[in-house]
């Protein structure tokens, strides 16, 4: 199995994660910028953080044969500080030239305040102006439905390319609204909150796999990168083929992220030996 983990916070995890992910078929991870567990005070702290995820983390992943990509943003929790967020935004575009940076994320909403909404709009504007992909975080638990609908309201008022926007952390009550408006929708599998492997497989069966991404968003909190593999196992147990698994867990991330040419991992298709020309089949067996 070939797996792309499209939402993974590597700096919060040990090298053992990389080792085990490599052993389980993960070929690439993408790391959005996120909240550090405390509110940062200085713009320079963000800029160093962006350097860490865009310059240093790829070297750690490479030790295990995994490609590492990243995103830059001020996360919604810290967007409440307008001065700080705007100082960071003013220097964010410099990182778009980095060979592994795919776009702006995770921006989004946390409590859906007016400050958060303003900074979300500014992130999306910046991304569109520079032809970048966008990854949008939607709130947790009680705030999920309201916040997701608010994100859609905000985007509806903007001039955006919906194919290039991924709205993350959808659940049963928000996935349809996101897909209906033409965005990519991400499901995050956590041990307790967000989705479970089984419910994620349900949504894949109900909606099909077009424009759906699955991730673990493993970070410094209760989380586990291998909830993604648990979902693959659940999907297989229900009789879905290897190719269908490949479509969901490798090819869809490759399709979305590949809209940025820096992400050069292409969708792949299994081919059986009897489909190969005779010479190729002989060559591959020697």
């Amino acid at each position: 199995m070939y797996i792309i983990q499209p939402h993974y916070h590597a700096i919060a995890r040990t090298a053992q994660d990389y080792e085990r992910m490599a052993m389980s078929g993960v070929v690439a991870v993408a790391e959005p910028a996120f909240w550090a567990g405390f509110d940062r005070k200085y713009p320079e702290t963000f800029l160093d953080y962006f350097r860490q995820i865009s310059e240093f983390e790829p070297t750690r992943a490479a030790d295990y044969g995994i490609r590492h990509f990243s995103w830059v943003a001020v996360n919604p929790k810290e967007a409440e500080n307008l001065t700080l967020a705007r100082e960071v935004l003013s220097q964010m575009a410099e990182f778009f030239d980095n060979p592994g940076v795919l776009g702006v994320g995770e921006t989004g909403l946390h409590k859906s305040t007016s400050n958060e909404i303003a900074i979300l709009q500014e992130h999306v504007d910046l991304a569109m102006k520079h032809g970048q992909l966008v990854l949008i975080h939607t709130p947790h638990l009680d705030d999920k439905l309201k916040g997701t609908l608010k994100v859609l309201d905000v985007l509806r008022e903007m001039d955006v390319d919906r194919d290039r926007i991924w709205i993350d952390h959808v659940e049963e009550h928000t996935v349809k609204a996101v897909l209906d408006e033409g965005y990519w929708a991400g499901m995050t599998i956590y041990p307790l909150t967000k989705m479970t492997p089984e419910r994620t497989a349900d949504i894949l069966e109900i909606y099909g796999h077009e424009r759906l991404l699955v991730n673990s968003s493993a970070d410094w909190g209760p989380s586990d990168p291998f909830t993604l593999q648990a979902c693959i196992l659940e999907y297989k147990r229900r009789g879905h083929s290897e190719q269908e698994c490949l479509e969901v867990f490798h090819n869809n991330p490759a399709r979305f992220l590949g809209q940025n040419p820096k992400f050069d991992i292409k969708p792949i298709r299994f081919e059986s030996f009897d489909e190969l020309p005779a010479k190729a089949a002989v060559a591959s067996s020697t």
Binding site: E172, T196, E198, R199
Partner: peptide, 10 residues
Amino acid sequence: RCKLLEIAAI
């Protein structure tokens, strides 16, 4: 919450 959602999904 998680377990009730799981039951509903089943």
